[in-house]
């Protein structure tokens, strides 16, 4: 149980990102929070494939010994590229919203009940 302390980094990243998404009112800062959550999830995926004392699964001038699992690393690569695509789309939509409303504050955006 005490050996699981490294996972605290994943928990910390996800909580930091989630609190930014919940408490911030600026859309750009919300997107930064979402990308921090993505980083936490990517770190978790990488950590799942790590074995004690292992090296990267690359045989070029490899020192030998135990190797980490390549499949979680490959899926993390997929996840990073999809994260870039999603971030690009989110930023485009935010530029669109900024032109429409003239502000990035979600409280001043839309809704007549303010």
């Amino acid at each position: 149980m005490i050996a699981n302390i490294p996972y605290l980094a994943v928990v910390g990243l996800i909580i930091i990102g989630l609190s930014a998404v919940i408490f911030k009112k600026n859309l750009i800062k919300i997107i930064i929070g979402i990308t921090i959550i993505q980083s936490g999830v990517n770190l978790f995926l990488i950590t799942l494939g790590y074995r004690e004392g292992s090296t990267a699964p690359i045989w070029t001038s490899s020192p030998g010994g135990v190797m980490a699992f390549p499949v979680p690393q490959a899926l993390t690569l997929t996840s990073i590229v999809i994260g870039v695509a999603v971030t690009a789309l989110m930023l485009s939509l935010v530029i669109h919203l900024y032109r429409h409303h003239g502000t990035l504050d979600v409280r001043k955006m839309g809704g007549d009940d303010q």
């Binding site: 149980m1 050996a3 699981n4 302390i5 490294p6 996972y7 605290l8 994943v10 928990v11 996800i14 909580i15 950590t47 799942l48 494939g49 790590y50 074995r51 004690e52 004392g53 699992f69």
Partner: peptide, 16 residues
């Protein structure tokens, strides 16, 4: 998340 962190498999020895 804290409970999941403590109950997951130990760090560095995943189920191969």
């Amino acid at each position: 998340l804290m409970f999941s962190m403590l109950l997951i498999h130990p760090f560095g020895s995943p189920n191969a």
